[in-house]
Amino acid sequence: MADNDSYPELKQEFLKALLSLDRIQAERILTDISHLKNAPCSSESLIVDVLETIGTEWENGKFALSQVYMSGRICEELVAHVPVQTRIPQKNAPAMAIALLNDYHALGKRMVLSVLHSAGYAVTDYGRMDVPNLVAAIKQDGIQIILISVLMLPSALHVKDLRQTLNAAGLLVKIIVGGAPFRLNKELWKTVGADAAGHTAADAIDIIDSICREKTP
């Protein structure tokens, strides 16, 4: 994180551009940063910081889900088009994937992917899967962190089946969950045997960083 005095203003400017869906202004800010020798931050850290702020303020009731979604989408597009300084691909980072468990509500998954891609993480998108197919894919791909996004309560409860099936197969996989049932019942992630729950898409970054630190000797 930058400590330069101009950073708060820059952050506010980028935040405003995203919330007003001003792609041109958002792109200009990132392009400027990439050309500055003494930029107050990297473009990647600015994106992550602003998306985290938007996610937190959604959780606090200040912003709306549509703003979280559109901001994430714009950042994802910018990362693809602008020479954004993303994190150097972490060669030692655990293999990770994301999936919808049974239900078709893909918004949460897409938002998490936007944030993680914007932050330079490689995440395999499994789409919608049931427990047996998901466990098979996890085993085949050597996945160590699985992110599960759900909207419906029955899907959330199936995380328990996923945990039991992974354990029975001897697969040591961290399960990170997110979605409305886990926001409305703060203890549910523990009940279903997940390792962590994210209340906003940007929470995924902190949780993954924390797991990476645990895994690093």
Binding site: S66, Y69, M70, R73, H105, A106, L107
Partner: peptide
Amino acid sequence: MGFGPYFDLMH
């Protein structure tokens, strides 16, 4: 149509 595409449509 799904949440994401609906937000895209709306905006």
